[in-house]
Structures are given as C-alpha cells and as structure tokens.
Nucleic acid binder design. Structure first.
Lengths: 351, 351
DNA sequence: GCAAATAGCGCAAACCTTTGCGTTAAAGTT
DNA sequence: AACTTTAACGCAAAGGTTTGCGCTATTTGC
C-alpha cells in the first residue's frame, strides 16, 4: 500500500530484520512449518503481519534454485494458433493451474531444430516436467530428458522406441471410419489431404485411409494422396490440384481443421458446392463446423480428455516419481460426427 | 552423448575443474566476454570443448537470480481457447521468441481475483515484463507494477487512469461502422449482444452502437441491448431471447467471435435463415467466416499488429527503460468486411 | 636493467531461499 | 541440586551465476 518506492524488492531478510527474528524462522513460518519447528504463535503472527505490511512476494527463482523445483511445466506445441492446439493448450493451462503449476508455452512451427532449442530452453528454466507434441522426426532430445529423469508426457503424436508416458488418439480408426463412411455413401474416388509427413498422426491417418480402401476392394490411387503439412495453404493448393485432375475425386478427406479451411477456400473459388458437387470430410471438429454452408461431417477428437489426462500423467510422474517399467500409454477413441457434407453417390464412379 | 547418468546437472564448476580454470573465466568465455577480459584463445577453445563434451546447459534460475533478468515475459489473457486470444497469443509468442524471450501464459477466465493472483505469480517468477489483457474492473495490481518499474503493456482492453503502454483497437468505430452498415441496409430494429460488461471493449462497442443509432435518429430500445460475457452460451441464450421477443429485431450484432457461435446455434435451432429471416454482423473475423451458410459480415481486428506491437512496446520498455512521461498508446483501426449475412430491408421496419 | 604497461586469469561477494544441525533458556523430573 | 526434556529459534552452507576488483607474470619502453 505505502509501497510506492523504487525497484527494491522485499526479501526474507527485510522481514527478519523488521520482526527481529532470523531469516530461517521467517522462512519456516511463511511456509507453514510453524508446528514442525515449534515456533511460537507470537512470532508467527508477527511475521505474517510484517510480511503483509511490506507486501512481500517470494522470489521463485531463489526458491527454485534451492529446491530444484519450480512448479512450472513446459509445453511444446507445433502451432498455438491452430484451433486444435489452442484448445488443448487452454485445457492444459487450466489443469496445470488447478494443480498449482504454471505453464511456459513454446512453439516449434513443426521444426525439429526449433523443438530441440525449446526443450533446451525449458531445461535451462528448470521446469518440473514436459508435455510435448513432437514434430516426430527425431527423438534424441526427448530421450535425454528421460535418461535424466525429467518427467515427460508425449501428447497427440508418438515417437518410435521412446519410453515416455503418452496420450494419443487412435488416428487409424478415425481415418478408417471417415473413409468407410465415404465408401458407404458410394464414393470410390476418395482423395486425402495429409498434414506433415512422418508424424505419427499423419502416418496413421494415411494407413487408416488405405486400409479402408483395401478392405473394400478399392484400388489406391497415388494421385489422390496429397499434402505435406498442417497449413491453410496446403489445404488450398492441394484441393485446387485435386479438383483439376483429369479424373477428379468425388470426395475429399481433409486431415486437419486448418487444412479444411484451405480446402473450403479452394472449393469456393472453383464454384464447387458441398456436398452436391463434391463431398468433404474433415479431421477435427470446430465450433463453426455445424454452421458452414454445408455442415461438416468430421472426426472429432476428445480434446478435453487429451489435455486433462496429459497433465494428470505428468503431475503424477513428477510427484510419485517414475516407474521405470510402467509408463502409461493412453489411447483415446475419436468419434465420427455425421452432418451434411457428404452426398450419396448412387452409381459408384468407377476407377 | 555419453551423458546417460543420473540427475546430476553439469555446472560451471564442473567445466572449470575439468578445464583447470576458474569458474569466473568459464562464465566469461561462455558469455562471449572473451575479448573484454582478454582471455586467451587457448583457454576459450578448451572451455567450449569441455562444455560441449559435458553437455552443459546453463541454469537459468541461478542466472536470473544473479542478473535480475529472466528473459521471460508474462502474458495474462482472459481465455486462450477463444480463437481471437489464441491467435494473438501465437503472435506474441512468435515475436517474443524472435527477440530472445520466452513466454509464461496465464489465464484469468475474466475473473479479477484470478488476474491478481496470476500477476503476483508472474512477479514471483521474475518475468521481465507483462502483457495484460485485463478483466477491467480493477487496476491496483497493475499500478503496483508500474510503481515498481516493472514494464507493462495493456493489450486490447484499457483501464482508466493507468499510465501504462497500451495497444488498443478503436472499438467505438468498429461498432459504429457495423451498426451504420445495418442502418444503411434499411435496418432499424437492431439488437446487440455484448460481452463482459465494464470492460473497455464492451463499453466502447456499446457506445459506438448507440451513437450510430442516435446519429440516424433511431430510438434506442433497451430490450435490444443484451449479453454480459464472452461465452458461447451467452450468444446462444441472448439470441434465443431476442428472436422470441414480441417484436424481434431484424438484425443482430454479435460483439465477439464466440458469441457469434452461440448466435448461429440459436438461429439454426429457431430455423431462421441468415440473411433472409434475420441479418447478422459480428465482431472478430475467423477463418471459417467466409464459408458459413451465410458468409459473415464482420468487423475485423488487426490481430497480427496487436500482438506484434505489444511485444515491441514491451521489449522497448524493458531494454530502454521507462520514459516516465511518454507511455505510448497505440490505437489501431478495425475494418468492416462485408460478406453476405446482411439483407437489404427496402421498407424500414418502424419501431 | 628498472618501471610501466598489458595479458590472463582468480577471489569472493551477491542474488534469495531452504534446511540440517546446534544452541540457549526454561520447564520438568527425581 | 543435578539432570533430562522441550520450546524456540539461529548459524551457516548450499544452490549456480555473474562481476568488480585485484593479483601475477610477461612484455614493452627507454
């Protein structure tokens, strides 16, 4: 209140001086160790009063240095502005906060070098644990964490041979179901627009797509397999390409919300109506999906659960230590939400 | 590489021992002060080599403690999962990172107590500066920062009588323009669904709306002024209420992206087609807006600029110190993007 | 050949907390 | 009265960096 002075921060020393006690006693009182160290109520009350008066704010750096704990989690995410990741970030922030942890958010832009850099930064900052959605091409830096007993949880995407806790979605099934849905509606010329290759999610989505085609005796057309990153432009360009093929597909499967935006743009430009002229199915639900000109049929991921479980796993590992042998691997099921962006093709178009 | 041992972290001391030099020399070499302190190339090279071998990672806590600088910024935002805030967060993260700063993200849920708590947390963590989108009802904690010479930039929302750097949008104008557009199209029964009251943004948007009505000689109908927070449910409930009025409005102005989602849901449920049955204008553009069943006419805010300028201002204040007298106040112009969610009413409906 | 300059580096304090171990004084026991 | 217990607190180290100041040994200048 009266504290209108300069930058000088109040420390335990200041409180100790003013209260006529030692720093250690003040520290103990302020940390609720009064009983344990049998400190008189008189001293305790005095310290609380003085701390309040001086508007004391503990220095988390010094505390972290001493305790080797910062009560901070590091989140490494490819792109926070992507609605899917933004939502998960929010959930993670929420549950971290509810458990007394704050969150440093790092963006990698799907760049492995950036990812390594961010992880090192987070190590430097002394975070107590990591939630990582890895780019997926490399895992040395993650293994380093594990070897040094720094708690890690992998989210959304997995890495081969890494012994970390994981929270994943069954992308194969999601993709399979979406493709099967299109096939059920009579489509056989089905294209897929993929995100960043070599990520586990993209690999599984591609496999699910292929398997559904195979299981239905539909030949795989390599020309219908396009896309290589999670960007609006990719959705746009690849869709343009697809619809201008000599033999364009009758249905497109866009494998992320952001790719979908690009696809919508391209289809609008080409004056193709969904679903009459072309069908569209997307991975990831968005708030706007039901209100699009063609309410979008989507594969919905359990985003709340993903974030919540990831935090839970991580905090458990931080607090109870690492069971060397049993790292949990949680796989959640996606759900096909059928709306109105797929038309029935009575006479299947032959290949 | 060979570092497969336990948790023991490598410090300057370890490097110093192995290199046969003092800790201070090692520190100076690793911080590029070789020339300044006239350290031989031989020593420098040796230190770099040893540091590499031991896989040294500086301890940012210790450094921050000593330097009183953490190269970390604190971002306080009402709701990261809101697409508008998510996008800005991304931009801020990007520019912070480009300038060598990392970012701790805090969420307030539009709760002033939570906001105060988060600010205190960030003080404890020793962030070098704050970007805050305040709830808006109280400013003591922000003034505390300013009095203690902790750099702050207010973003999106302002607070009365606070002498901080600010990056704002001309909400009055955005709202005025949107309302005027509706009036130009012949509407007179125009409702507005507001976000959280007593925030500067909401206040200004309400004023802009009212002024446009007044300037056109249209009477203000209090029944058409509804809403009190930025949530989907608010958009939904208030829209339901509006269209079921005895004399429902012919146009609705939804003052945020998320309110818009709720409004869309309500209108769909009520089987009201946009724009034929009712017109809709929204604050905030989203990627999906053009592809909705009625491509949405919106007031678009310059989100990239908002984030970029906020970071720039903040870092400038961090590095060049505070010009006590001249705190910049940047006001950006929003832009009306006309699409297809407003119909012309030839015969203005009388009140 | 002697003083002065310079190259090259180390000492120790400071940043703020936490905590193991000790100390002191009072109260209780026999 | 002598001794043990307990209440109530303090000392000092530790954690890893940075930096002002100071020290030595070698060069340079004349």
């Amino acid at each position: 209140m009266l504290q209108v002075s300069g930058k000088m921060n109040i420390t335990l020393v200041d409180i100790a001086k003013k209260a006529g006690l030692s720093v250690s006693t003040v520290s103990r009182i302020l940390n609720g160790q009064q009983r344990k160290y049998r400190i008189s109520d008189k001293s305790a009350n005095l310290v609380f009063k003085v701390a309040e008066e001086l508007n004391y704010k503990p220095n988390a750096l010094a505390r972290g240095l001493r305790l080797k704990k910062t009560h901070t989690l590091g989140l490494v995410v490819p792109d926070i502005s992507n609605p899917f990741f933004a939502f998960i970030t929010r959930i993670i922030q929420l549950h971290a906060h509810n458990n007394g942890y704050s969150l440093i958010v790092c963006n990698t832009d799907e760049n492995i070098e950036s990812e390594v850099e961010q992880v090192n930064l987070l190590i430097s900052k002394g975070v107590d644990g990591f939630i990582i959605m890895p780019v997926g091409t490399q895992s040395d830096h993650i293994e380093y964490l594990i070897n040094n007993e720094l708690p890690v949880v992998l989210l959304d995407r997995t890495l081969a041979n890494v012994k970390a806790g994981m929270v994943l979605v069954d992308n194969f099934k999601g993709s399979y179901d979406a493709t099967q849905h299109l096939i059920n509606k009579g489509h056989t010329a089905i294209a897929i627009v993929l995100g960043l290759r070599n990520t586990s999610t993209t690999n599984e989505r591609l496999e699910g797509y292929k398997q559904a085609l195979i299981d239905n005796g539909i030949e795989i057309n390599e020309k219908y397999i396009v896309g290589n990153d999670f960007r609006i432009e990719t959705g746009y360009i690849e869709t343009k390409f697809l619809v201008n093929l000599e033999k364009p597909p009758t249905a497109i499967f866009a494998t992320s919300d952001i790719i979908t935006v690009g696809a919508l743009k391209a289809l609008a430009e080409e004056n193709l109506k969904i679903p009459d002229d072309i069908s569209l199915v997307a991975f990831d639900d968005t708030d706007f999906a039901p209100y699009l000109s063609a309410p979008l049929t989507v594969v919905k991921q359990p985003k709340e659960l993903m974030g919540e479980i990831a935090v839970k796993l991580l905090i458990e590992e931080i607090q109870n230590g690492h069971d060397e042998f049993e790292k949990p691997k949680i796989i959640l099921k996606p759900k096909l939400v059928i709306r109105n962006s797929v038309v029935s093709v009575s006479k299947p178009v032959s290949i």
